[in-house]
Write a protein that binds this DNA or RNA. Structure first.
Lengths: 258, 258
DNA sequence: CGCCTTCTTGAGATGACTCAATGGTGGTGG
DNA sequence: CCACCACCATTGAGTCATCTCAAGAAGGCG
């Protein structure tokens, strides 16, 4: 609740995106170029959003959908008593904002965890574009199916795994996704990734308290499996982590590639 | 685990579907008829599945996707230790089987709770159909978005609500969906619906134990809010139930209509 | 340097779980 | 039509994982 601040979208297109690992808009990946010519006349703008600011909130009538180009964001839903569930962390390449009520109120909130750059589409245009281009609409369905599979994985974890297993699932999933993205943008450290999350955010993603997240992270550190410290996740024993998480690392990497 | 039996698909098309409340295949609803003419040459068969039998399991390479015409089914994922999360209950009109790896292993299992009738499509055809017809692909994306919103709702509940609130959410959601479907097929009893679930299944859908489901149901009965008995859910105090569930009844009804 | 957020740790409370035993109920076959 | 059996619901008592409340330590940022 407390960390929701004013939206700061600096309008004006960002022409270049030099450090962006995903050059194409996610919706267009794999769609043949000649089928995209006609989309030229649809509006498409790039925006910056500062760390810790809100892109939109649950209940807003928000006119855009986005592809995240750089940075980390999160999607969340809250209850009246202030409890918050983080549904997903967004990484470069992820699509945000598509939902059933295309022109109704958003069913979740989106916040930037780091400074972000994103590509925006007017909802009205998206609607038309999908109905005019089957390859695009199919890709949209596929993106949705990927996110669905992920949401179901998290639901399985939240409903049936204990604290340690849930945490292993989340961290391994992020570890693999970030390393997969990195394939496109070379990096040095093989067994550590940037992890711009507070323990409270991890807690809200896993449905546990921040204190228990802290204790669980300590257990992992004591067992020399992983170490989360100063916004960095270091994995010492990936095999053991995979075992605890009970996830299929190969499937995760495939998902991350889409 | 124990209630997984042999698949019994009686092949041969079911030409009529007299008692079916959803006459159209979900994927085709809202798609103009003239755009569907050309789909005629794609295969489409109807099947029956007996109560308590499996349609397919996590890990199977299953060649069909389905629309459920009559009956209740459930989608679930399991862990090695036998714990099972029920991801969703399927009602007439629901689409099952679409996923990212269209031709790979299924990421979840599907079981029939009652005797069911469903309409099957070969996966290979679906792929082509989507890529040839934008309206169809858009509709697929929309169906997915609906299911996504529902999955996120459940995730919020499982992560942040207590036993009573979670249970209220599930039962209210089913209550509204079934009553909405009933709009198409008139029925008498206004405040009760058929609920072909065991307490153990409710438990697996909510991430709690069957014993605690039993105790929680008792609390609801004692408070004269609802009564689940002999495969029937009777709601005595819908206002109170909605309040406890902290759900938007109007939004639920809209979702149910898609 | 100082302030504010985040992390860390402890101790006690509790909601939900486990284990165990009994009671119901519907379906099946004699 | 009844008797049996398997499955499902019910209830109790004790345990445990996780939560709550509290207080101090450590970062990071202006």
């Amino acid at each position: 609740m407390a960390n929701i601040r004013q939206l700061q979208v600096n309008s004006g297109p960002v022409t270049q995106c030099a450090q962006c690992p995903v050059r194409e808009h996610a919706l267009f990946q794999g769609v043949p170029l000649e089928q995209l010519q006609w989309t030229q006349h649809y509006r498409e703008d790039q925006y910056r959003v500062d760390a810790k600011t809100r892109l939109f909130s649950e209940g807003d009538e928000h006119p855009y959908v986005y592809t995240l180009f750089t940075g980390w964001m999160m999607i969340s839903k809250s209850l009246a008593n202030g409890k918050r569930q983080i549904l997903r962390f967004l990484l470069p390449g992820d699509f945000v904002g598509f939902q059933l009520q295309l022109h109704g109120k958003m069913t979740y909130s989106v916040h930037a965890l780091t400074d972000c750059q994103l590509c925006a589409f007017p909802r009205a245009d998206l609607d038309k574009m999908l109905n005019e281009n089957a390859a695009l609409a199919t890709r949209m369905a596929m993106l949705n199916a990927r996110d669905m599979a992920f949401c179901q994985q998290v639901l399985l974890a939240t409903g049936q795994k204990n604290a340690m297993e849930r945490m292993a699932s989340l961290l391994l999933q992020l570890f693999i996704r970030v390393k997969t993205l990195r394939g496109l943008v070379k990096d040095s450290d093989e067994n550590s990734i940037e992890l711009p999350l507070s323990q409270e955010q991890i807690a809200d993603a896993l449905g546990m308290t921040k204190e228990h997240v802290n204790r669980t992270l300590r257990e992992f550190r004591d067992a020399e499996i992983l170490d989360v410290r100063s916004k960095r996740l270091r994995v010492m024993d990936e095999a053991r982590l995979t075992e605890i998480a009970e996830l299929d690392a190969k499937a995760l990497a495939e998902q991350a590639l889409l």
